[in-house]
Amino acid sequence: MLQVNPFVSALQQMRTLVSEAAGPSALAPDQPNPAANGSIDFATLLQQSLAKISASQAASRGEMQAFQLGASNVSLNDAVVDGAKAGIKFQESLQIRNKLVSAYTDIMQTPL
């Protein structure tokens, strides 16, 4: 019977998640795929995340405006749910920013 090392399995799952998160659909056409050469740039991931949050908020605003204008293909439920999703994504990004600032402050206050 073949036994799989749990660390190897966890590493493979993390690599799969990273490649999905940094997939070609998340990149602008002129940007190289950072997962292609095995390295992932933090600034690129941050920029992509912020772009996704901004797009989510813009889509939510557009859907809410379409509902307010009486578009027949937009329901109130869909508009409210998409608005809530965009709000949650924004709050999540704020929490991540707060954790990064806290970590940076802790590192800067550490005596050498």
Rank of each mutant, 00 (worst) to 15 (best):
94 L>E: 11
101 V>R: 04
71 A>P: 07
97 R>S: 14
28 A>N: 12
103 A>D: 07
89 K>H: 07
16 T>A: 05
33 N>G: 09
104 Y>S: 05
46 L>E: 02
75 S>L: 00
56 S>A: 15
94 L>T: 13
96 I>V: 12
63 E>P: 08
68 Q>M: 14
42 F>E: 00
30 D>R: 10
72 S>F: 01
82 D>E: 06
19 S>A: 13
38 G>H: 08
7 F>R: 14
33 N>V: 07
5 N>W: 07
77 N>L: 12
56 S>W: 02
92 E>L: 11
50 L>W: 03
24 P>N: 15
87 G>K: 01
95 Q>C: 00
44 T>Q: 00
111 P>R: 04
81 V>N: 03
96 I>D: 09
14 M>A: 13
30 D>K: 11
94 L>Y: 11
29 P>A: 13
18 V>T: 14
51 A>Y: 00
42 F>G: 01
74 V>M: 00
96 I>A: 05
68 Q>G: 13
49 S>D: 00
85 K>Q: 10
89 K>N: 06
98 N>S: 10
8 V>D: 13
56 S>C: 13
50 L>N: 09
104 Y>M: 04
74 V>C: 04
100 L>H: 04
90 F>A: 01
23 G>Q: 06
11 L>V: 15
58 A>M: 15
71 A>T: 11
25 S>L: 14
4 V>F: 11
5 N>M: 06
96 I>Y: 03
7 F>H: 13
98 N>P: 03
9 S>Q: 15
6 P>S: 12
72 S>R: 03
27 L>N: 00
105 T>K: 10
14 M>Y: 11
